[in-house]
Write a protein that binds this DNA or RNA. Structure first.
Lengths: 204, 204
DNA sequence: CAGCGTATTGAACAACCGTCAATAGTGCTG
DNA sequence: CAGCACTATTGACGGTTGTTCAATACGCTG
C-alpha cells in the first residue's frame, strides 16, 4: 500500500533520479508495451510531476529510446560470450544464455522486440545495434580460418542470412517459450545452431 | 490541388463509404506507419468529419485492424500459389512473387510488418493468420510423401522452424530490397528456398 | 413535394504531451 | 547557525487527438 502518502517533494541528485526513472521504465516494460508507458503513468508511478521528466529527457520519444537502450544493454550483458574455443560450443552456450534470458524475462523481452519494430527510426537503430552486437561476437571468436573450415566465407549474402537468422531465432525462441509443444530445450538449441551453420554455409 | 472545395456534405451508401475509408487507410499506409494514421488525418483526407469514422468502426484500434487485415489480404492474394507440381519450383515461384510484391510495395509492406509487431493483440493475430496462410499452402501442395522424400516430417519442431523461417524471410527480403549489396535476385531466392529445406529437414 | 430513415456533422469532454515561470530543497559560506 | 545561491521540482496552461452524442440534413419513397 504505497502511494497513500503523497510525499511533499524529494530532491535527488540528477544521476540517481535519472537512474530511477530508467529502471522504472524497464520495469514497467514487463507489464505493458512501450507506448503504453505514458508520461502520465510514469510520473505517477515514480511519484514525481510530469514536468520533471522533461528535465531529464527531451520528450517522450527520447525517454522511450533510453528505456529500450537500457533493456537492450541488459540483454547483451547477460548473454555475454564465454571463453570456449570451439565456435560451435560457444554458439550453443550463447544461445542457451539467450533462451534463459527470454524465459526469465519474457514479457519484458517481448516488449523490447515490439518497441524495436515500432515506427520510430531511432528505436530501430538501437535495436539493430544490439542485434549486431549479439551476432558479431559469435563470428569474432571464431577466426576466419575456423569459419572457412565450416565452409563459411564472409560476404554480403552471408551477412544477409545472419541477419535473417537473428530474426528467426527471436521468433522461434519467443514462440517456444510461449508453448514448447514438446520440443526440448536441447533440441531447440541444436536446431537453431545447426540452422545458422546451414544458412550461412556457402552454396554447394 | 484538392481540398480547396470543402464540399458541403456527401451522403454515401454504408458499403461504399466503408470501402473508401479502408482503401484510403491502406493507401496512407504506404506513406506512414499505422499509428501515424490518426483519425484526424484520415477524416481530413477522406473529406469527412472525425465523428463519422465511429459510425463505421468502433474506435481507432478497430479501424487500424481493419486496414491491416485488408493489406494482409492483398499480400496473400498477390502471392497466390501457382500450379506447378514440383514443390521446390512451387516454392521458388511463390517466393519470387513475394519478393516482387515487397519490391513494388515496399513502404506499405514495411508498415504492415511493423503494425503486426505493435502492442495490439488483435493486430498480431491478424498477421499470424496471414503468415500461416502464406506458409501452409506451401506444404499443402507438396503431399506428405513428397515431403518425406525431402527428409521432412510434420512435427512441432518442424512447425516451429517454419515459423522462424517466415520471420527470416521477412527480414532478409526487406533488408535485401533496401540494399541488395550485390546479391542477385536468384541467389536470394535460392538461399531462402534451400534455407527452408535445411531448417525443416529432420536432424541426421 | 412532404416525410422519413439514417448518414453525417460539430460541439463537448477526456486524456495526454510539452512548456515555463515560480517554488523550495540542499549544500555552502560567512 | 543564518542567509544565500544553485537547481531540482512543481503546477498551471495551451495544444493535439480520441471518443461520445444530440442535432442536422441528404436522398429516397410514396
Amino acid at each position: 500500500m504505497r502511494h497513500m502518502t503523497a510525499s511533499p517533494r524529494v530532491r535527488m541528485s540528477p544521476d540517481s533520479r535519472r537512474e530511477q526513472l530508467l529502471d522504472l521504465g524497464v520495469r514497467l516494460l514487463a507489464t505493458r508495451s512501450i507506448d503504453e508507458i505514458s508520461i502520465e503513468l510514469l510520473a505517477e508511478e515514480a511519484g514525481i510531476s510530469r514536468g520533471l521528466l522533461y528535465h531529464y529527457f527531451g520528450n517522450k520519444q527520447d525517454f522511450h529510446r533510453a528505456v529500450v537502450r537500457r533493456a537492450a544493454d541488459e540483454l547483451i550483458e547477460v548473454t555475454a560470450p564465454s571463453s570456449d574455443t570451439d565456435p560451435l560450443v560457444q554458439l550453443m552456450l550463447s544461445l542457451g544464455a539467450y533462451v534463459e534470458y527470454v524465459t526469465d524475462n519474457f514479457e519484458g523481452y517481448v516488449s523490447l522486440v515490439r518497441a524495436a519494430a515500432s515506427g520510430d527510426e531511432g528505436m530501430r537503430e538501437i535495436y539493430e545495434e544490439a542485434r549486431a552486437a549479439l551476432t558479431d561476437r559469435l563470428f569474432e571468436v571464431a577466426g576466419r580460418e575456423q569459419l572457412a573450415a565450416l565452409g563459411v566465407t564472409d560476404s554480403a549474402a552471408t551477412r544477409l542470412m545472419v541477419r535473417g537468422w537473428s530474426a528467426l531465432t527471436e521468433e522461434v525462441v519467443i514462440s517456444w517459450v510461449r508453448s514448447p509443444a514438446g520440443v526440448s530445450r536441447d533440441d531447440l538449441l541444436q536446431r537453431l545452431a545447426h540452422g545458422l551453420v546451414a544458412l550461412v554455409r556457402d552454396p554447394a
